[in-house]
Design a protein around this nucleic acid. Sequence first.
DNA 1: GATGAATGAGTATTCATTCAT
DNA 2: TATGAATGAATACTCATTCAT
Lengths: 224, 224, 224, 224
Amino acid sequence: MTRASEALPHHSSSYDGRRLTPKALATRTRIIESATDLFANDGYAAVTVRGIAAETGLSSGAIYATFRGKADLLVEAVRASITEDLATLPASIVKKTLPEIDAYQFTISSSARRQRSRKLLLEAAVAARTDDDVRDQLSTILQARVDDWTAAHTEWKRASGAARGTDMRALTTLLVSIDLGMGVLSALGVETPSPQQSSALVLQLMESLNTSEPVRRAPKRARS
Amino acid sequence: MTRASEALPHHSSSYDGRRLTPKALATRTRIIESATDLFANDGYAAVTVRGIAAETGLSSGAIYATFRGKADLLVEAVRASITEDLATLPASIVKKTLPEIDAYQFTISSSARRQRSRKLLLEAAVAARTDDDVRDQLSTILQARVDDWTAAHTEWKRASGAARGTDMRALTTLLVSIDLGMGVLSALGVETPSPQQSSALVLQLMESLNTSEPVRRAPKRARS
Amino acid sequence: MTRASEALPHHSSSYDGRRLTPKALATRTRIIESATDLFANDGYAAVTVRGIAAETGLSSGAIYATFRGKADLLVEAVRASITEDLATLPASIVKKTLPEIDAYQFTISSSARRQRSRKLLLEAAVAARTDDDVRDQLSTILQARVDDWTAAHTEWKRASGAARGTDMRALTTLLVSIDLGMGVLSALGVETPSPQQSSALVLQLMESLNTSEPVRRAPKRARS
Amino acid sequence: MTRASEALPHHSSSYDGRRLTPKALATRTRIIESATDLFANDGYAAVTVRGIAAETGLSSGAIYATFRGKADLLVEAVRASITEDLATLPASIVKKTLPEIDAYQFTISSSARRQRSRKLLLEAAVAARTDDDVRDQLSTILQARVDDWTAAHTEWKRASGAARGTDMRALTTLLVSIDLGMGVLSALGVETPSPQQSSALVLQLMESLNTSEPVRRAPKRARS
DNA sequence: GATGAATGAGTATTCATTCAT
DNA sequence: TATGAATGAATACTCATTCAT
């Protein structure tokens, strides 16, 4: 009876996709794409809602009919970006060993897509520091991603018998950190290693987990 | 595009320290300290020049007598923070091996000082993305630091004969990235490994550079 | 200056009721009812056309099929409210004397219906200050009501021989003013007299018109 | 030590006047005067902060250096208006009896000053309905004024022995209501009595309190 | 009749920065 | 050096209204 559907725009944008007119969904997608580009290139703070609207070919009001506001848009941009990232690898995933996959991530790390994603995450991190709501949402999204990746590494550990004594969550987080950290350095104008170099180092780290004793127990004579 | 670029006669704040009355220097230091705290805690964008002034016990106008503007203040805060970071370790540097020092960095990575520094750098990175002038200055400051650290690793490589075939700049950058990347994850509300875990992993990576063949040449059969 | 003045073909909403399908009439009535509630409770400025639509179970577009716009809705809400007010008393009108009726109005002045009406009129008054079209329409509606009431008092004066020298329009207006003025005070958070007290004072005023000489002629020695 | 004086603009504007640079005070007064005019003439909702600034010959930022915002400005405008109203009568207050003073208020009720004040109060009342903070502040200001006036009437009652059985607060509130109510009618485009007529009616009401028995006790046979 | 996606004008508010004192 | 009053540009967000379907 109460068709509050219009008055209170869905705005639970967190998971939507269903319950949206095809038209509305298309608009939503278009807006997210524009927003992602702008946030990543110009920086969250410097981007204007009007700018996003213009880029999308809409009026600023249209943005607010679909998203709660600029912050919500950022969160959704991150969500979409993460989702897309995951959907991008599959092709080679089955055929290689996990360490190779990890290393592969760095090989492609200079691709436009990956860079955009990394920049976006950087902007999101800073926005999250000030906006609790953003932080909470991003936390959920990203933690889930790390969890998935951790599970993959745990499975790899079990199957290969490698990395005895190494915490897979720590390892996974560290790998993600490297990627993000390079994004920070890059933003700061510091030279970062080439994809090949990063990739090689990461592979080396992963390999070392197979052979060497867990460092933890005998850090002093580890090399003897 | 470059904002704070107009050269005002009385401050080339980039390298100052000389040419300032003790009183002025004290004021300058106090301002930087307040600014660093605020930028790190509340975020660069959210911090107000007036807020910094208030925190320091000055009027906003007084800030502009010492710094070119908010952006300049950020750069100087980073410079001071970096300088302080370096001055903090020395004590133990001579007595341990480089890998242990690297690992040590992560051990103390949860100290208030280090966290503040990491947060500041995160804010700086994002600000640098929008402000070319900031980026240029920070680039110089940080590149120098990485260079120093790289030199230390290169020396270690030479002395220990370890890490054949590994690019020391890449390694150094990677180590710094891990630290910064964890700062990003932390800001995003994602759990990060404990200092012990990070430290152990890093040590393991460093150790592996001694034993194993350089991964680069034979990535496919690296573990055989 | 006159905003809602453009004459759209299908609604001269001013006097409608005829020329509408039963269904349309029902919708119209429902909308007015919702609008009245919202305007009175939340204030004209704070109420949204979409909010009214949602409350009514319609889309905002539907409102515009029936009313020229928000302002028109306000006018119609007032018209309906006034009409209803008049229809509410009749029962006792014949049995009591006019002064008693006047006093009675204040007795019931705290009823939900009366309060809503008073609040609506307050909002309307302020809206009318800015919107000439609204003002003109409300003026017509309300002036007519005061005229009716004035006529009743004039008849009473003639019949009872009371209130010699007193202008009945002035008296009527004053009685209405008291009611509205209390609404203003109430909105301002100022305590207003109880219905009993107001009622008693009004009755006393009316009574005084019977006994005392018209004050007008001898204001100076009035109390001697 | 903390000179937060600049960072947190005084903003306790409620009672200020002291602790303000002469210059600042002058600015403050000028702003209030402009705001009062605009609010009264164009209506609170229709008035723009920029408009007030322009009228005052300042930038919009200057307004916010002195007032919390538009709402605060409204409250202060009312406070100033009330204060000024009180300061305007004194001349004749001592020489006349209270009823005559009450009546006098209506005589001058068409003066520009009084009209402006009444319009302002009307706008304030409507704003108060939506903004609790405004309501609370206005409530305090106006309640105090009614209290003062009530005290005067109570004293008059005691001294003259008049108005036995009549609640002086109720009477006072009613007198104020009449004034405000006429403002509402006027805004609604309804004719209001001339100052003379209003004045005469009020005087008559007041006089009746002297002679007649309190209506309260014998409402039923009041006309017999 | 109704829907709801889209418009786009309108505005309060913030804040880095300047400058007369 | 310091103050703090003043500037004025910049922007997120709201909402009455329209119109293709």
